[in-house]
Write a protein that binds this DNA or RNA. Structure first.
Lengths: 111, 111
DNA sequence: TTGTAGACTAGCGTCGACA
DNA sequence: CTGTCGACGCTAGTCTACA
Protein backbone atom coordinates (compact mmCIF):
# COMPACT_ATOMS: atom_id res chain seq x y z
CA UNK A 1 0.00 0.00 0.00
CA UNK A 2 1.60 3.32 0.72
CA UNK A 3 0.96 4.20 -2.86
CA UNK A 4 1.65 7.80 -1.96
CA UNK A 5 2.99 8.81 1.35
CA UNK A 6 -0.15 10.65 2.21
CA UNK A 7 -0.02 12.36 5.58
CA UNK A 8 -3.60 11.44 6.17
CA UNK A 9 -4.89 7.91 6.59
CA UNK A 10 -7.69 8.53 4.19
CA UNK A 11 -5.45 9.93 1.53
CA UNK A 12 -8.13 10.13 -1.07
CA UNK A 13 -10.58 11.71 1.26
CA UNK A 14 -8.04 14.19 2.53
CA UNK A 15 -6.61 14.94 -0.88
CA UNK A 16 -6.94 18.54 -2.01
CA UNK A 17 -9.02 17.49 -4.94
CA UNK A 18 -10.60 14.70 -2.96
CA UNK A 19 -13.86 15.27 -4.69
CA UNK A 20 -12.93 15.92 -8.31
CA UNK A 21 -15.52 18.03 -10.01
CA UNK A 22 -17.76 16.00 -12.27
CA UNK A 23 -18.63 18.97 -14.39
CA UNK A 24 -15.64 21.26 -14.09
CA UNK A 25 -15.53 23.38 -17.19
CA UNK A 26 -18.84 22.45 -18.67
CA UNK A 27 -20.00 26.00 -18.88
CA UNK A 28 -23.47 26.33 -20.37
CA UNK A 29 -23.08 27.38 -23.94
CA UNK A 30 -19.43 26.38 -23.97
CA UNK A 31 -18.24 23.25 -25.65
CA UNK A 32 -16.19 20.80 -23.64
CA UNK A 33 -12.45 20.92 -24.00
CA UNK A 34 -12.58 17.52 -25.63
CA UNK A 35 -15.76 16.77 -27.47
CA UNK A 36 -16.98 13.19 -27.54
CA UNK A 37 -15.86 11.44 -30.68
CA UNK A 38 -12.96 13.77 -31.36
CA UNK A 39 -10.63 10.79 -31.46
CA UNK A 40 -12.81 9.03 -33.98
CA UNK A 41 -12.87 12.10 -36.17
CA UNK A 42 -9.16 12.80 -35.90
CA UNK A 43 -8.41 9.22 -36.75
CA UNK A 44 -10.68 9.30 -39.77
CA UNK A 45 -9.31 12.61 -41.00
CA UNK A 46 -5.68 11.58 -40.70
CA UNK A 47 -6.46 8.20 -42.13
CA UNK A 48 -8.04 9.59 -45.28
CA UNK A 49 -5.38 12.25 -45.57
CA UNK A 50 -2.39 9.96 -45.21
CA UNK A 51 -3.94 7.36 -47.45
CA UNK A 52 -4.73 9.83 -50.22
CA UNK A 53 -1.32 11.39 -49.76
CA UNK A 54 0.22 8.08 -50.69
CA UNK A 55 -2.25 7.48 -53.45
CA UNK A 56 -3.38 4.28 -51.79
CA UNK A 57 -6.83 2.86 -52.14
CA UNK A 58 -8.82 1.57 -49.21
CA UNK A 59 -8.17 -1.90 -50.48
CA UNK A 60 -4.42 -1.28 -50.58
CA UNK A 61 -4.40 0.13 -47.08
CA UNK A 62 -6.50 -2.75 -45.87
CA UNK A 63 -4.05 -5.13 -47.44
CA UNK A 64 -1.08 -3.36 -45.89
CA UNK A 65 -2.63 -3.09 -42.45
CA UNK A 66 -3.79 -6.67 -42.67
CA UNK A 67 -7.31 -5.55 -41.93
CA UNK A 68 -10.45 -5.92 -44.01
CA UNK A 69 -11.54 -3.56 -46.74
CA UNK A 70 -14.92 -2.91 -45.19
CA UNK A 71 -13.38 -2.03 -41.87
CA UNK A 72 -11.17 0.67 -43.38
CA UNK A 73 -14.19 2.19 -45.07
CA UNK A 74 -16.13 2.21 -41.82
CA UNK A 75 -13.33 3.84 -39.85
CA UNK A 76 -12.96 6.57 -42.44
CA UNK A 77 -16.68 7.20 -42.24
CA UNK A 78 -16.49 7.25 -38.45
CA UNK A 79 -19.18 4.64 -38.23
CA UNK A 80 -16.84 2.30 -36.42
CA UNK A 81 -14.79 2.72 -33.28
CA UNK A 82 -11.48 0.95 -33.82
CA UNK A 83 -9.30 -0.40 -31.03
CA UNK A 84 -5.80 0.89 -30.34
CA UNK A 85 -4.40 -2.40 -31.52
CA UNK A 86 -5.87 -1.83 -34.96
CA UNK A 87 -5.07 1.88 -34.91
CA UNK A 88 -1.45 0.97 -34.39
CA UNK A 89 -1.65 -1.44 -37.30
CA UNK A 90 -3.03 1.33 -39.48
CA UNK A 91 -0.32 3.72 -38.33
CA UNK A 92 2.33 1.11 -39.02
CA UNK A 93 0.96 0.54 -42.49
CA UNK A 94 1.11 4.27 -43.15
CA UNK A 95 4.57 4.52 -41.66
CA UNK A 96 3.55 6.97 -38.96
CA UNK A 97 3.33 6.81 -35.19
CA UNK A 98 0.10 6.05 -33.38
CA UNK A 99 0.19 9.51 -31.82
CA UNK A 100 0.32 10.99 -35.31
CA UNK A 101 -3.06 9.44 -36.04
CA UNK A 102 -4.58 11.63 -33.34
CA UNK A 103 -2.47 14.68 -34.09
CA UNK A 104 -4.51 17.66 -35.29
CA UNK A 105 -4.25 18.14 -39.05
CA UNK A 106 -1.94 20.89 -40.33
CA UNK A 107 -4.15 23.96 -40.60
CA UNK A 108 -4.13 25.13 -44.21
CA UNK A 109 -2.91 28.67 -45.01
CA UNK A 110 -5.92 30.97 -44.77
CA UNK A 111 -4.64 33.34 -47.40
CA UNK B 1 -14.91 9.06 -58.11
CA UNK B 2 -11.57 9.79 -59.55
CA UNK B 3 -9.48 9.24 -56.50
CA UNK B 4 -6.33 9.75 -58.48
CA UNK B 5 -6.27 10.73 -62.09
CA UNK B 6 -4.24 7.75 -63.04
CA UNK B 7 -3.43 7.63 -66.73
CA UNK B 8 -3.87 3.89 -66.66
CA UNK B 9 -7.24 2.19 -66.30
CA UNK B 10 -5.89 -0.12 -63.68
CA UNK B 11 -4.79 2.67 -61.40
CA UNK B 12 -3.78 0.37 -58.60
CA UNK B 13 -1.89 -1.92 -60.89
CA UNK B 14 -0.15 1.00 -62.51
CA UNK B 15 0.42 2.85 -59.28
CA UNK B 16 4.05 3.59 -58.41
CA UNK B 17 3.82 1.50 -55.30
CA UNK B 18 1.33 -0.83 -56.88
CA UNK B 19 2.72 -3.80 -55.05
CA UNK B 20 3.70 -2.52 -51.64
CA UNK B 21 6.24 -4.75 -49.99
CA UNK B 22 4.78 -6.91 -47.27
CA UNK B 23 8.04 -7.04 -45.37
CA UNK B 24 9.78 -3.84 -46.37
CA UNK B 25 12.15 -2.88 -43.59
CA UNK B 26 12.28 -6.15 -41.74
CA UNK B 27 16.02 -6.30 -41.87
CA UNK B 28 17.44 -9.30 -40.02
CA UNK B 29 18.74 -8.11 -36.72
CA UNK B 30 16.84 -4.87 -36.98
CA UNK B 31 13.73 -4.28 -34.96
CA UNK B 32 10.64 -3.03 -36.73
CA UNK B 33 9.94 0.68 -36.62
CA UNK B 34 6.78 0.00 -34.69
CA UNK B 35 6.70 -3.11 -32.58
CA UNK B 36 3.40 -4.90 -32.10
CA UNK B 37 1.69 -3.77 -28.93
CA UNK B 38 3.61 -0.53 -28.64
CA UNK B 39 0.35 1.38 -28.45
CA UNK B 40 -0.92 -0.81 -25.65
CA UNK B 41 2.27 -0.29 -23.71
CA UNK B 42 2.44 3.46 -24.31
CA UNK B 43 -1.15 3.79 -23.22
CA UNK B 44 -0.54 1.81 -20.04
CA UNK B 45 2.64 3.69 -19.20
CA UNK B 46 1.12 7.11 -19.67
CA UNK B 47 -2.02 6.03 -17.90
CA UNK B 48 -0.20 4.89 -14.77
CA UNK B 49 2.10 7.89 -14.91
CA UNK B 50 -0.58 10.53 -15.26
CA UNK B 51 -2.80 8.85 -12.70
CA UNK B 52 -0.05 8.58 -10.10
CA UNK B 53 1.00 12.11 -10.93
CA UNK B 54 -2.39 13.29 -9.82
CA UNK B 55 -2.42 11.00 -6.85
CA UNK B 56 -5.56 9.35 -8.14
CA UNK B 57 -6.49 5.78 -7.43
CA UNK B 58 -7.71 3.42 -10.12
CA UNK B 59 -11.13 3.73 -8.61
CA UNK B 60 -11.01 7.52 -8.80
CA UNK B 61 -9.86 7.45 -12.43
CA UNK B 62 -12.51 4.91 -13.24
CA UNK B 63 -15.07 7.15 -11.65
CA UNK B 64 -13.85 10.20 -13.53
CA UNK B 65 -13.62 8.45 -16.87
CA UNK B 66 -17.00 6.87 -16.30
CA UNK B 67 -15.47 3.45 -16.87
CA UNK B 68 -15.26 0.48 -14.55
CA UNK B 69 -12.55 -0.07 -11.97
CA UNK B 70 -11.59 -3.47 -13.32
CA UNK B 71 -11.20 -2.13 -16.81
CA UNK B 72 -8.71 0.53 -15.71
CA UNK B 73 -6.68 -2.13 -13.95
CA UNK B 74 -6.64 -4.32 -17.03
CA UNK B 75 -5.56 -1.52 -19.33
CA UNK B 76 -2.72 -0.58 -17.02
CA UNK B 77 -1.62 -4.21 -16.99
CA UNK B 78 -1.88 -4.31 -20.78
CA UNK B 79 -4.15 -7.30 -20.58
CA UNK B 80 -6.89 -5.40 -22.37
CA UNK B 81 -6.97 -3.60 -25.70
CA UNK B 82 -9.07 -0.49 -25.25
CA UNK B 83 -10.91 1.25 -28.05
CA UNK B 84 -10.15 4.82 -29.09
CA UNK B 85 -13.52 5.90 -27.76
CA UNK B 86 -12.51 4.81 -24.27
CA UNK B 87 -8.96 6.05 -24.67
CA UNK B 88 -10.39 9.45 -25.38
CA UNK B 89 -12.52 9.19 -22.27
CA UNK B 90 -9.44 8.35 -20.23
CA UNK B 91 -7.52 11.24 -21.74
CA UNK B 92 -10.40 13.59 -21.04
CA UNK B 93 -10.54 12.45 -17.42
CA UNK B 94 -6.82 13.12 -17.10
CA UNK B 95 -7.13 16.44 -18.85
CA UNK B 96 -4.78 15.51 -21.68
CA UNK B 97 -5.18 14.99 -25.40
CA UNK B 98 -5.66 11.56 -26.90
CA UNK B 99 -2.36 11.95 -28.74
CA UNK B 100 -0.66 12.52 -25.40
CA UNK B 101 -1.69 9.05 -24.32
CA UNK B 102 0.47 7.60 -27.10
CA UNK B 103 3.26 10.12 -26.73
CA UNK B 104 6.54 8.54 -25.65
CA UNK B 105 7.19 9.18 -21.96
CA UNK B 106 9.94 11.64 -21.03
CA UNK B 107 12.86 9.26 -20.68
CA UNK B 108 14.72 9.99 -17.45
CA UNK B 109 18.34 11.18 -17.75
CA UNK B 110 20.56 8.13 -17.79
CA UNK B 111 23.16 9.97 -15.80
C1' DT C 1 -5.89 -0.16 -3.00
C1' DT C 2 -5.01 -3.25 -6.63
C1' DG C 3 -5.17 -7.74 -9.29
C1' DT C 4 -7.78 -11.41 -10.93
C1' DA C 5 -11.79 -14.71 -11.96
C1' DG C 6 -16.26 -15.73 -13.72
C1' DA C 7 -20.36 -14.69 -16.24
C1' DC C 8 -22.80 -11.65 -19.13
C1' DT C 9 -23.91 -8.01 -22.83
C1' DA C 10 -22.55 -4.99 -26.49
C1' DG C 11 -19.92 -3.86 -30.08
C1' DC C 12 -15.77 -4.66 -32.95
C1' DG C 13 -13.91 -6.94 -37.00
C1' DT C 14 -14.35 -10.39 -40.80
C1' DC C 15 -16.48 -12.14 -44.85
C1' DG C 16 -19.43 -11.98 -49.05
C1' DA C 17 -22.30 -9.44 -52.03
C1' DC C 18 -24.56 -5.49 -53.99
C1' DA C 19 -25.25 -0.45 -55.54
C1' DC D 1 -12.89 2.20 -56.16
C1' DT D 2 -15.94 3.08 -52.38
C1' DG D 3 -20.16 2.77 -49.30
C1' DT D 4 -23.22 -0.33 -46.98
C1' DC D 5 -26.12 -4.28 -45.46
C1' DG D 6 -26.58 -9.09 -43.23
C1' DA D 7 -24.68 -12.58 -40.69
C1' DC D 8 -21.21 -14.43 -37.64
C1' DG D 9 -17.20 -15.02 -34.18
C1' DC D 10 -14.56 -12.92 -30.87
C1' DT D 11 -13.26 -9.77 -27.51
C1' DA D 12 -13.94 -5.35 -25.37
C1' DG D 13 -16.36 -3.62 -21.29
C1' DT D 14 -19.48 -4.21 -17.09
C1' DC D 15 -20.47 -6.13 -12.54
C1' DT D 16 -19.78 -8.95 -8.41
C1' DA D 17 -16.67 -11.03 -5.42
C1' DC D 18 -12.38 -12.69 -3.45
C1' DA D 19 -7.15 -12.56 -2.25
Amino acid sequence: MSATESPSPSARAAAPAAVPAKTPATVPGTLSATAPGVARRLLALNLVRLRAQRGWSQEALAHESGLHRTFIAHVERQVRNASIDNVERLADALGVSVAAMFQPPPDPPAG
